[in-house]
Simulated scan of single mutants.
Amino acid sequence: MKIAFVGKGGSGKTTLAALLARHLAAAPDQPPLLAVDADINQHLAAALGAVQDAALPALGDHLAEIKEYLRGDNPRISSAAAMVKTTPPGRGSRLLTIAGTNPVYDATVREVDGVRLAVTGPFAERDLGVACYHSKVGAVELLLNHLVDGPGEYAVVDMTAGADSFASGLFTRFDATFLVCEPTVRSVGVYKQYLGYAADHGVRVHVVGNKVADESDVEFLRTHVGPDLLTWFSRSDWVRAAERGQTLSLDALEPANHAALRRIRAAADAAEKDWPRYARQAAEFHRRNAAAWANDRTGEDLADQIDPDFVLGDQLVH
């Protein structure tokens, strides 16, 4: 399952993404797992327990190599330079799996406290005034477009905050989207904005309450998000320490919050895996990007990169 955590900045989505990743990594069945930090504020590694000055390789810095590898011998793609963030896979493309080994993972994935992690990379000084952060997040979109995840496998992605997630088609690349929502008017406002955009694309949103102090907070969330409220995390010493950059043993997490993690995993496991829709949406957003900017940039009609008979996921049964 491809899982996204979204929400208002400061809502705790990074903390909960890290918490779910650690929960899965510690599960008795040890499911294959890959965590990805796609937020402009790169804090997932720290939330997982990496030391603050640890240098992790950035996906954005390896974009050329990623394109060259994924391209494979797909005849529809003239060159790696002609690949853009929305380029979908086709016959001849190299595909990725959650746990498999490949040059992309060798270059960009590192283990942090038992969790395999890839990071987009920070917005650097050289990017100020000349680059868009979504050009870096394009590496994540390419990765997910070529990722074949089987039953019981998880990719957990910490997305950019707020409605900025909709600046690319990346928001459609997930089987389960968890919107972290505080019991506040501003946080609920982001939920309503996200829901409005997502509904047009069949994106199912589960709301996960965070920083819930008492039953009145739960009632506030129920009033404003209704049946979309899946579960919630109470205010706790564990979560507060995590948001301050401290890494505690998962055993110290409160039982109610452990139960919330189990509900999140169960909701992800119950999500419908619709590979044909995934392919249709990938093609749709690729056509949009091609017409809007990519054709002019590459000098090609990139709609020709779409392989109409290729469905990612068929490889699991053939």
Rank of each mutant, 00 (worst) to 15 (best):
Y133D: 13
D309L: 03
P88S: 03
L34T: 00
D251L: 06
R263I: 00
A35L: 05
T177A: 08
A18I: 04
E272W: 00
A271W: 00
T87R: 03
A303Y: 02
D158Q: 12
A282P: 00
N145G: 14
L312A: 02
V190M: 12
Q246Y: 05
A35H: 05
D296P: 01
D296Q: 11
R222D: 02
L221Y: 09
L20K: 04
L20Y: 09
L229Q: 02
D251I: 02
T87H: 01
D304N: 12
L56M: 10
P276T: 07
Q52D: 11
V115T: 05
D269E: 08
L44K: 01
T184N: 10
G152A: 01
Y154Q: 03
S165Y: 14
A267P: 02
A58W: 03
A259V: 08
D127N: 15
L33I: 05
N74A: 07
D217Q: 09
T101M: 13
D106N: 13
S249A: 13
V212W: 04
R110G: 03
T223N: 14
V51Y: 02
W275I: 08
L195A: 15
C181D: 09
D39K: 06
G12H: 02
H258A: 03
L142R: 11
L261E: 00
D53C: 04
E254Y: 01
A82I: 01
F171Q: 10
A260N: 09
H258P: 00
R280N: 01
K211D: 00
T101P: 12
V109G: 01
H224E: 15
G9H: 03
F285N: 02
S168A: 15
L59Q: 09
E272C: 01
H224R: 15
G189M: 10
G313W: 01
G49Q: 04
H206L: 04
E65W: 07
D164N: 15
R94C: 09
L19Q: 07
V119N: 02
V188A: 10
G138N: 15
G189S: 11
A163F: 12
A99I: 12
I77Q: 04
M1N: 08
H62F: 14
A47K: 04
S93Y: 02
D158K: 06
H134V: 14
K136Q: 10
T97P: 07
K85D: 11
L253A: 05
A35G: 05
Y133I: 09
A47S: 12
H286C: 12
R222P: 03
E215I: 13
L117D: 00
T97G: 15
R280P: 00
K273W: 00
L44F: 04
V104M: 11
G10L: 11
A290N: 11
L128W: 02
F178A: 05
V225N: 13
V317D: 10
L33V: 02
